[in-house]
């Protein structure tokens, strides 16, 4: 079997790429896709730890399941917002949505 740390490195890599995407992309939909990447990386992390540390305890899988749920809900709502914003402002560039500018 592959050692645990390799799974962790993969998950960390995907997570950090997701972070980069969230911080650096202009398009809102692209940002949402990066967020999905981050959540996916979290899942990989969780399940890796479940398998290697306590495979009898269902906590790991259950947690991962809930992460799925949350990701789904968040994606739905997020995209709904993007569409609503697009309808109002004709733009999905998040930099343009700066009404809270101080």
């Amino acid at each position: 079997m592959v050692p645990l740390w390799m799974y962790l490195v993969v998950s960390a890599a995907v997570f950090c790429i997701g972070v980069y995407g969230v911080l650096a992309r202009r398009n809102a939909v692209a940002i949402l896709m990066s967020v999905e990447l981050m959540l996916n990386a979290v899942n990989i992390n969780l399940l890796a730890f479940w398998r290697y540390v306590a495979p009898q305890n269902m906590a790991g899988q259950a947690f991962a399941a809930f992460v799925f749920v949350v990701a789904a809900a968040e994606a739905a709502v997020g995209l709904a917002i993007v569409i609503a914003v697009y309808r109002n402002r004709r733009s999905v560039i998040v930099e343009d949505v700066n009404l809270l500018r101080g």
Partner: peptide, 10 residues
């Protein structure tokens, strides 16, 4: 200091 609050979430 207000400049910090650019309104840009990223």
């Amino acid at each position: 200091l207000r400049g910090i609050q650019s309104g840009r979430v990223q």
